[in-house]
Simulated scan of single mutants.
Amino acid sequence: MTKIGFIGFGSMATLIASKMIETKTATPEEIILYSSSENKHFKAFYAKYPTTQLAANEAEVFTKAEHSFICKLPLAVLPLIQDCASVLTPERHVISIAAGVSTVDILDISPQLQVSKLIPSITTSVGVGTTLIAHADTVSRSNTNWLESAFEHFGHVMTIREENMDIASDLTSSSPGIIAAIFEQFVEATLRRSTLSDAEVFQMINFSLAGTSKLLVEADYTFNGLIERVATKGGITAEGVELSQRELPAFFDELLERTQGKYASSKKEIEAQKRDLLS
């Protein structure tokens, strides 16, 4: 029986563990978890899957699990690796989902460890998201295959160079929130200019988003192809497209500048922490 461990059990760990069980990637009995606090996610998951094994501490998870997901805040990852160094033997496979913490950072603390980095998306809960994965050179072929195969059941898997992980995360992990924020403003503008109800406007935009996605994925449209199909020259839609093309480049340039700046700030904190841990 392959044991799959979770250290830290918030919303994303719950999503991953639940999806593994739902897709029969793992059984509840194959999951071992440790959470320093019995939060609502932990309580709900354990109530639903009471045969899940609970560990007494983080080291027990690493000791018993072949694959261990670290689902903690970035600044908690490296101290955890250092504290558990005695049980992190070379055959252990550790998967970190923390932004700003690279596989190199973890290997600097535990050089022989097999380390993968994984960035999930909330959209994988409905089977259509993209999971980003990067592997350190220390990871065996069998472990890379296991991780990638496991997440293919969640949706689409992309293995990429870790140097591209941050900006790619904006497109996969962050974009559902960004898209929701953009279209929330579209809804608010519509409400200011009509007598439609919130529910009516939300339903209209919701189905338009779903339909647009299906056209792009299932009908093999490109963005430009869809624009050409819908926006007749001189027509009403063309007005909106022209405004978007004029105003949105600056918005998205600033968006990426801000998110990449946040990543850079987090990495500086991790580097400072690493120097302290290794000194």
Rank of each mutant, 00 (worst) to 15 (best):
A47R: 07
H93Q: 06
Y263M: 10
T144N: 04
R275V: 10
I122S: 02
L243I: 11
T51P: 04
E162H: 01
Q53A: 08
H67W: 15
S35A: 06
T131H: 08
H135I: 02
T131A: 08
D198W: 11
G5L: 03
L226A: 01
V217C: 11
K64W: 14
E271I: 10
G8S: 06
D170E: 07
A26G: 01
S197N: 06
E60P: 03
M158I: 15
V61P: 00
A181N: 09
E66Y: 05
L209D: 03
D137F: 13
E58L: 10
G10D: 07
V94D: 03
K268R: 08
A180D: 03
I70A: 14
E38N: 04
K262G: 04
N39V: 15
D105C: 06
A44S: 08
A44Y: 07
L88T: 01
G100E: 10
F6D: 04
P90H: 14
A76K: 13
E218Y: 02
Y221V: 04
M158E: 02
K262V: 06
K233M: 12
V201Q: 01
Q185D: 12
T131F: 02
T23D: 10
Q112A: 07
D83I: 01
V230G: 08
A219N: 09
T195P: 03
T2M: 13
L147E: 04
V187S: 11
Y34P: 03
I32A: 00
D137L: 03
K72L: 05
A59M: 14
I95G: 14
S86W: 12
T2W: 12
R141V: 13
T63F: 04
F69D: 03
E271Q: 11
I4F: 05
S35M: 00
V104E: 15
A238K: 07
T27M: 07
T89K: 06
I205A: 12
G155N: 00
T131M: 00
R161I: 13
T124P: 06
A168K: 04
R258N: 09
A210V: 13
E30P: 05
R229D: 13
L256P: 01
S121F: 05
S265M: 14
R161Y: 01
E30R: 11
I236G: 13
S86V: 09
G5H: 07
I182Y: 06
A55T: 06
S266E: 12
V217R: 14
F183Y: 10
I21P: 00
L248E: 08
N206Q: 05
K19N: 12
H156F: 09
E66S: 11
T51F: 05
L78H: 08
G10E: 05
A210C: 10
L215P: 00
S208T: 12
N164V: 13
P28V: 11
T159D: 10
T195E: 14
V230N: 01
S266M: 15
K24M: 09
I160G: 11
Y46T: 15
A189N: 13
R229E: 10
E58Y: 12
Y46S: 07
K267F: 15
S194Q: 09
A13Q: 02
L196Q: 12
S149C: 00
T138E: 07
G240R: 09
G155F: 00
Q203W: 14
L256K: 14
